[in-house]
Each structure stands twice: as C-alpha cells, then as structure tokens.
Computed example of a mutant assay.
Amino acid sequence: MTAKPPKIPVSVLVVLHDGNGNVLLIERADCKNFWQSVTGSLEPNETPEAAANREVLEETGIYLSDGQLCNWHESTEYEIYPHWRHRYPAGVTHNTEHIFSAEISRQTPIKISLSEHTAYAWLPLAEAAEKVFSPSNRAAILNLHKHLF
C-alpha cells in the first residue's frame, strides 16, 4: 500500500443550505461529534471551484449544476490542528480555506461518504453555527445571509 501524498494546505468550505434558513451538516467519521459543512483540500492543479464541486459530490453525492455554486471570493487562514499536521508537508502549520455556498432542496437525496462521515442533519442556521467545531465554519454559516440572491 502506498502512502498518500501530503495534502496541499489550501482547502474549500461549502455551506449547503435550503434557502429557508437551514444548513446541511455532516459528522466526521474520524472525530465523533465533529460536525461541519462540506470541506476538503485541493488536489494538484485544481481550482478552488473545481475542488468545491468535487468535494460536494464526494461527501454528499450531490452534483451541483452550473451556476449553483456561489463563490464568496473570501478566504480564511487558520492554524491546522496539531493532530492533523502529519497529513501536510513537514513544517506546514496553516491552511487557506476558500468559502462557497450552494442552495439545494431538502428533498435532494444525501449519500454521505461513510469512509469520511457517519451522519448528516439539516439544522436551523443558529443551531448549525453552534454545532460545528470549526470557527471558520461557524463564521461562514453566520454570514450566509450576505451571499444569498
């Protein structure tokens, strides 16, 4: 078995919402009670938009149509949790996260990747913001209203 190459310290965060004040969260398989929006690192030569679409499909089974993904043109830099730094090149301590959102119907079938997540839930904005473990995810959920059209 070959080792995975180190992750690129650039990622995406995609807040999936129903347009009626509810957000879809998924629970990480590797950390019980770590709820989050869709996230993931860029692959080599991948744009943030392509990564966002790929991660939504991989983590929820949802294919976003053209124009459905909203690029906030915002990013956050944060310190990578020490217990996850081994996934990155030696000496890397920070990650840049690009923020996106997409409106999806609550009737859309959700098929989580069981290797990455154990559950999903639709929650009202305030409850979702309280439940996520990441401060940048919390801020994105609370700022969602600025990016609705």
Rank of each mutant, 00 (worst) to 15 (best):
T2Y: 04
K4H: 00
P5K: 06
K7H: 06
K7N: 08
K7R: 15
I8G: 04
P9N: 12
V10E: 15
S11F: 05
S11W: 06
L13C: 00
L13M: 04
L13H: 03
V15K: 07
L16A: 04
G19S: 09
G19D: 04
N20M: 14
N20D: 07
G21C: 03
G21L: 01
G21Q: 09
N22F: 05
N22C: 05
V23Y: 14
L24Q: 09
L25F: 07
E27I: 09
E27W: 12
R28P: 01
R28F: 04
R28C: 00
D30W: 00
C31Y: 08
K32I: 09
N33M: 10
N33K: 11
N33A: 08
N33F: 10
Q36K: 05
S37F: 01
G40F: 11
E43K: 06
E43M: 06
E43P: 00
E43I: 00
T47S: 06
P48L: 01
P48H: 04
P48G: 00
E49K: 05
A51M: 00
A52E: 03
A52S: 10
N53F: 02
E55A: 02
E55R: 14
V56F: 11
V56A: 12
L57E: 14
E58P: 02
E58C: 08
E58Y: 09
E59T: 09
E59I: 11
T60W: 11
D66P: 00
L69C: 01
W72P: 01
H73F: 04
S75T: 06
S75E: 04
S75I: 02
S75N: 12
E77T: 15
E77M: 03
P82M: 02
W84R: 05
W84E: 01
R85C: 03
H86M: 01
H86K: 08
R87N: 07
Y88V: 05
Y88S: 02
Y88N: 02
A90F: 12
A90T: 07
T93A: 08
H94S: 11
H94Y: 10
N95A: 09
T96H: 12
T96R: 15
E97Y: 02
E97N: 11
E97L: 14
H98Q: 05
I99V: 13
I99L: 12
F100I: 04
F100N: 03
A102H: 15
I104A: 06
I104K: 14
R106N: 09
R106Q: 15
R106L: 02
Q107M: 08
P109E: 15
P109R: 15
I110Q: 11
I112E: 11
L114C: 07
E116F: 13
H117K: 04
H117A: 00
H117D: 01
T118H: 10
T118N: 11
A119M: 03
Y120F: 15
A121L: 13
W122G: 10
W122D: 10
P124F: 13
P124E: 11
E127Q: 14
A128R: 07
A128N: 06
A129N: 08
E130I: 05
K131P: 01
K131A: 11
V132F: 14
V132M: 13
V132N: 12
P135Y: 05
P135Q: 11
N137V: 14
R138Y: 03
A139Y: 15
A140Q: 14
L142M: 14
L144M: 07
H145E: 12
H145D: 13
K146D: 12
K146P: 05
H147M: 08
L148W: 11
F149P: 10
